[in-house]
Amino acid sequence: MANSINERHVISVIVMNESSVLARVTALFAGRGYNIESLTVAPIPESDMSHITIATNGSSRVMEQITKQLHKLIPVYKVIEHEEMVEKEMVLVKFPIAENLSDISALCAAYNGGIVNVGTEMVIAQVADEPKRIKHFIEASQRYNPCEIVRGGVVAIER
């Protein structure tokens, strides 16, 4: 089959705000054997709709099916398979306060982030950047012994 190479794709699904709509979307992925790499949902301001962003992977045939099957769901208003997009992801990392805070601060600054909370034993850093750079940031942060890392899902907007 042509185009059978698995590639990463980001799709936005605009749905009507109604009960179990997220379950319909995720059940479709589970039932038809598609992958979800990350998923974010939030209401669209001043509307009765929500924006779901899904990062997934698959061949072009699979991507076409995902898009079409999503569109078949009754509460799905629109499906956008992103091509030219701005894509961001957020991560929160908790470091022990005993680590070198100025180094951590410099590291965060290099990835458009910073320390957002300081407690008696821990500091919390926040970074929002492209998913690839988030991955690099997490790798770089390992030397400061992070105790907890929480990654948000991807959000994307077409350019």
Binding site: S20, A23, G31
Partner: peptide, 16 residues
């Protein structure tokens, strides 16, 4: 019921 029938109905409703 809506959970079970989701993959075998065109659409389903739970009346709220």
């Amino acid at each position: 019921a809506v959970g079970i029938s989701r993959p075998c109905t065109k659409h389903n409703f739970l009346i709220r």
